[in-house]
C-alpha cells in the first residue's frame, strides 16, 4: 500500500469517526430527547410543558444546524491536515 492510499484511508477513517459522533448526537436530540426519552425529561418544565416537547419542536432543529456547521468546520481542517484541500 503506497503513501497516498494509506493517507486517504486515514483521512476516511477520521471522517467516519467524526460522522458517527455527530450522528449519535443527531439521533439523541430527535429520536431520543424529542420522542423516546421524553418521559424521562418530563420533570424539566419549560413554558408550560416539558423539555422533550421543546426538543421535538425547536431544540432538535437548532442542534441540527450546529452539527452541520461543526462537520463542515472539522472537515475543512481535516482536508488541510491530510493535504486534500481545494485551492
Amino acid at each position: 500500500m503506497n503513501d497516498q492510499s494509506s493517507k486517504a484511508d486515514a483521512y476516511w477513517a477520521e471522517n467516519k469517526r467524526l460522522m458517527v459522533i455527530l450522528l449519535v448526537i443527531w439521533a439523541l436530540v430527535s429520536f431520543g430527547f424529542g420522542i423516546i426519552l421524553r418521559p424521562l425529561l418530563a420533570g424539566i418544565e419549560i413554558g408550560g410543558t416539558d423539555l422533550g416537547f421543546w426538543f421535538a419542536q425547536q431544540g432538535s432543529i437548532l442542534t441540527f444546524i450546529a452539527l452541520i456547521f461543526i462537520y463542515a468546520w472539522r472537515m475543512n481542517a481535516l482536508d488541510r491536515k491530510y493535504d486534500f484541500d481545494e485551492e
Partner: peptide
Amino acid sequence: GYGNSSFLMGWTGGYVLLAMLLAP
C-alpha cells in the same frame, strides 16, 4: 399537536444526512 413534530424533525434532520453522507 406534539405528535406531528415528526414533520419538523424529519424535514430538517434530513439535511444532516445530506451534509455528511451525500452532498460533498
